[in-house]
Simulated assay, not measured.
Amino acid sequence: MATVPPGTRTPTPSPSAAGGAGPLLRAWREQRRVSQLELALRAGSSARHISFVETGRARPSEEMVLRLAEHLDVPVRERNALLLAAGYAPRFPETPLDDPALGALREGIEQLIGGFEPYPALVVNALYDVVAANSGVLQLLDGVPQDLLEPPLNTMRLTLHPRGLAPRIRNLRQWRGHLLAQMERHIALRRSEPLRALYEEVAAYPVPASAREGEEAEEVAAYFALPMRIEHRGRTLSFVSSVSTFNTPMDVTVAELAVETLLPADPATAEYLQSQVA
């Protein structure tokens, strides 16, 4: 298993940060559909003070910026941007994954996804680039053209590209819809332009003619969750996906990592994967 560290980046506020933290806080509040009064109650403040902060009539304290960001569920990277816009130093570091300070995290990740074998498991960053993967994932990539496997490996490109896994996914239209909807939710949460660019790229990929929408609904009807049904060495394997993140992260890199595991969706898939290590 190889680990690829994301590059170190300095948090930069959006152009609207020129007017201080107020416009940014208002934008996050409106996006979360929270009223000034509701936010004030959550943060132990007053609607009047929230209004003054948003219009620039009051400069929030560093503690208030962080409190409001927490109650608005602002991503860690964007909390740094809010602090910068308010005139404070960023609070959360962005440590490269190969830094010695994250050695325990890397070891824990490797043990976690290694212990999940023979089932596929991987770790991705905020742009769905693979930073770690176990042998179960590598097995599924068998036959993918080498140019699509050049680092950084991106799970969305690998899955939806017409020369990637897409032609092998039996219920591609449904699985594609699930992945694009997931990306849309993350764009709304993070307001990331690179993520939006990735979404526009993969959403424009043509759907292979082999995708048969009429058969897909019938095939997946008996499953307890929407599976990915993929052809592999002459048989169809079915997986359901589970995604987990780190709780209360204090580092941007850690906050943007997600562990995805692919669980067998039927006994036949589980038996086949177990047979590969017997």
Rank of each mutant, 00 (worst) to 15 (best):
residue 4 V to H: 14
residue 6 P to R: 14
residue 6 P to M: 13
residue 8 T to V: 14
residue 8 T to Y: 15
residue 11 P to S: 02
residue 12 T to W: 06
residue 13 P to Y: 14
residue 14 S to T: 15
residue 14 S to G: 11
residue 15 P to G: 09
residue 17 A to F: 04
residue 20 G to I: 06
residue 26 R to L: 05
residue 27 A to Q: 14
residue 27 A to S: 11
residue 27 A to V: 06
residue 27 A to W: 15
residue 28 W to R: 02
residue 30 E to K: 14
residue 31 Q to V: 05
residue 32 R to Q: 08
residue 34 V to Q: 06
residue 34 V to W: 07
residue 36 Q to D: 03
residue 36 Q to G: 12
residue 37 L to Y: 01
residue 37 L to N: 10
residue 39 L to T: 05
residue 40 A to P: 04
residue 42 R to L: 15
residue 43 A to V: 09
residue 43 A to W: 09
residue 44 G to T: 03
residue 46 S to E: 07
residue 46 S to P: 07
residue 48 R to M: 10
residue 49 H to E: 00
residue 49 H to V: 04
residue 49 H to D: 00
residue 52 F to G: 06
residue 55 T to A: 04
residue 57 R to C: 08
residue 57 R to T: 12
residue 58 A to D: 03
residue 59 R to E: 05
residue 61 S to P: 04
residue 75 P to R: 00
residue 78 E to P: 07
residue 82 L to S: 03
residue 88 Y to S: 10
residue 88 Y to L: 03
residue 91 R to P: 03
residue 96 P to N: 07
residue 97 L to V: 05
residue 98 D to M: 02
residue 100 P to Q: 05
residue 105 L to S: 03
residue 108 G to K: 01
residue 112 L to Q: 09
residue 112 L to V: 12
residue 112 L to S: 03
residue 113 I to Y: 11
residue 114 G to A: 04
residue 116 F to K: 04
residue 116 F to L: 05
residue 118 P to M: 07
residue 118 P to R: 07
residue 120 P to C: 00
residue 121 A to C: 06
residue 122 L to A: 06
residue 123 V to H: 08
residue 126 A to D: 14
residue 128 Y to V: 02
residue 130 V to M: 01
residue 133 A to Y: 10
residue 136 G to I: 08
residue 137 V to C: 08
residue 141 L to R: 08
residue 143 G to Y: 11
residue 144 V to N: 00
residue 145 P to D: 11
residue 146 Q to V: 14
residue 147 D to S: 12
residue 149 L to F: 08
residue 150 E to C: 11
residue 151 P to N: 12
residue 152 P to S: 01
residue 157 R to D: 09
residue 157 R to V: 15
residue 158 L to D: 01
residue 159 T to Q: 11
residue 160 L to E: 05
residue 160 L to F: 04
residue 161 H to C: 00
residue 166 A to Q: 09
residue 167 P to D: 07
residue 167 P to W: 02
residue 174 Q to L: 15
residue 174 Q to S: 01
residue 179 L to K: 04
residue 179 L to P: 09
residue 182 Q to G: 15
residue 194 P to F: 10
residue 197 A to H: 12
residue 198 L to N: 01
residue 199 Y to I: 03
residue 200 E to H: 11
residue 205 Y to I: 00
residue 212 R to N: 15
residue 212 R to F: 02
residue 213 E to T: 13
residue 218 E to R: 15
residue 223 Y to Q: 09
residue 227 P to E: 02
residue 229 R to W: 09
residue 231 E to W: 10
residue 231 E to L: 07
residue 232 H to T: 01
residue 235 R to Q: 12
residue 239 F to W: 06
residue 239 F to D: 04
residue 241 S to T: 14
residue 242 S to A: 15
residue 245 T to Q: 13
residue 246 F to L: 12
residue 248 T to G: 09
residue 249 P to C: 05
residue 249 P to T: 07
residue 250 M to P: 07
residue 254 V to S: 00
residue 257 L to I: 07
residue 257 L to R: 09
residue 262 L to T: 02
residue 264 P to N: 00
residue 264 P to V: 01
residue 270 A to K: 06
residue 270 A to Y: 09
residue 270 A to E: 08
residue 271 E to I: 01
